[in-house]
Amino acid sequence: MSSDDQIERLLMQLVRETSVGNVRWSLTEPHYFLNNATDDLVVANFGASYGDLSVGVYEARYKYWRDEDEFYWCSEIRFSVAKYDSLIVDYRKSSAALQQLYEMARTQVMDFDSLLKGSFF
């Protein structure tokens, strides 16, 4: 089993745990090295603690270099794992599980259920 495969499994597990309600996501500061010493910018970072790891899904804007001096901005959803404040995983393959996890974390943070008033319309 490759390490990518293991991370995909972890992502699926997180999706399931989130849907059950075992993992609580909140808006947190991204890890220092996710937006320092790099050109990438972090739009939003949703973090949660999972066991003794702190996991995070975030949207990054990065420069896609077409040529030596020509680039445009792209957006990507990524996954990070930190342990004892060290960044140990920065996963950048936007798989279906990762996309779904990001959406669920966002929905949880937005808390639509309490935001949308059923009686308003």
Binding site: M12, V15, R16, T18, S19, V20, G21, S95, A96, A97, Q99, Q100, E103, M104
Partner: peptide, 17 residues
């Protein structure tokens, strides 16, 4: 395939909750 897998995962999450 990817979008179908994503909607499957979303449906499963809904099933769970």
């Amino acid at each position: 395939l990817k979008s179908e897998v994503k909607s499957l995962i979303a449906a499963l999450a809904e099933w769970e909750s």
